[in-house]
Design a protein around this nucleic acid. Structure first.
Lengths: 66, 66
DNA sequence: ATATTTTGTAAAGAATACTTTACATTAAGT
DNA sequence: ACTTAATGTAAAGTATTCTTTACAAAATAT
């Protein structure tokens, strides 16, 4: 699964730390998510969707195979 | 977090088992998800979104507080 | 150039998603 | 009524998410 978190965060000019606080997770969680190191929960996806003002499908996209 | 999986599944007339197979999880996972017993991963949310032809936000909604 | 902020990364632990097996209950079909 | 399909639930185990602490590297600012 791919994601566009880094660019969306850049649009809002937020640091990883600031974004982390807004959605209530640790900075490392944001960092790892941006690095594609794991699949976040749906709750996180929805919260990110809210922060960025974009639908989940525009932030996260399934890749071929999955 | 709430979800409308049961009604969406009813619309498509799928059993829990059939839906489980389509998205590659066990039947119990579907059952527990419908019962709100846990928060699925974003990959599952996106797959369900595909199956039901509805955006993730229409299948899963955050509740006050989270 | 140096100081400060931001990001990358790692490792150990806690919490939770998901599986498998198994059985009981409910609904649907004949 | 009886059989079969569908759902509810539970418990043990595995895998993965997410936290905390900590430090190194890179970027930004002064």
């Amino acid at each position: 699964m791919k994601n566009s978190l880094r660019v969306e965060r850049a649009v809002l000019r937020l640091t990883q730390e600031e974004l982390a606080q807004r959605i209530g997770v640790s900075r490392q969680t944001i960092n790892a998510m941006e690095a594609g190191k794991y699949v976040p929960s749906t709750v996180l996806a929805l919260k990110l969707s809210q922060v960025f003002g974009k639908p989940v499908e525009q932030l996260f996209t399934l890749e071929a195979g999955d």
